[in-house]
Amino acid sequence: MKIGISTQGVARGTEVRPLGRTPAWWKRFFRLTITYLFLTATSILFLIPFAWMISTSLKPQDQIFVYPIQWVPHPFIWGNYEQVFEQVPFFRYILNTMLITGVGVIGSLTGSSIAAYSFARMRFPGKNFLFLVMLSTVMVPGWVTLIPSYIGFHLLGWLDTYKPILVPAFFASPVNTFLLRQFFLTISPELEDAARIDGCSTFRVFWNIILPLSKPAMIIIAIFAFFYYWNDFLGPLIYLQTQDKFPLSLGVASFVSEMSSNYALTMAAASMALMPCILLFFLAQRWFVQGVVITGVKG
């Protein structure tokens, strides 16, 4: 990827005063040393909370209150993790979260890719106007639509089900639709024309040509949707009441409010809730970086 390393003016210009008769090599050496020291120190700073969370989650209760901090638990209490499962239906929370996240990701991909194909390729009156309308809805904060949506779902009898969270997932979100439309526009239409001449239906063109070529954009949307639905708290907080239906976010929140003094268990629960996100991040890193850059810079 091109973000990694590149030669640039900014880099070359970092000013370190020449040290007497020291040759340029020393200058560069010192500059690099300082840069690396600084980067290492700051990244340790960024990682301390994670390290501390994991360390705490494996400690016997009395070592948590040892100060200054004892970083390596002695002995390792893996039982803290088991206890979380005994205290609350944690396994259930995990399954619920996987269900919500899975359906949420599929929904996000389906709705937005269909709408984006229409915006990218089809000709109909009012298209530009509708596209502008869609873009402007990005500014509507979720808080404004929350109360009427809640009432609406209440009237439908959908409270305490996953429907208020999952049904909207299938209706194209403006950001995803915009992203995919931009991507579809970069695909040359000649392939599609050829397929159409061969008698392919619009759906087959979309399914067999456009979607496979749009893998990068689809992966980025899937990853961001995964994180959104995995961590979503407000939706479950408002719509779910039965403990057996809780996802991890709500489950961990209620677990912590019950167990607030048992730091080892709360940190074990937090670690388990975070682990899939961290794993996915490492697995899909390059997509992440691209996703952030696309959504952030091209906006």
Binding site: I5, T14, Y36, P49, F227, S249, V252, A270, L274, Q285
Partner: peptide, 27 residues
Amino acid sequence: QSIAGIRIFRTLYYLPSVVSGVAVAVL
């Protein structure tokens, strides 16, 4: 800068911003 290992630092700095929500708040 054109120095080696920038990707590792980038990963480390970015890690906290991929996690969010309740677990992070609890942490």
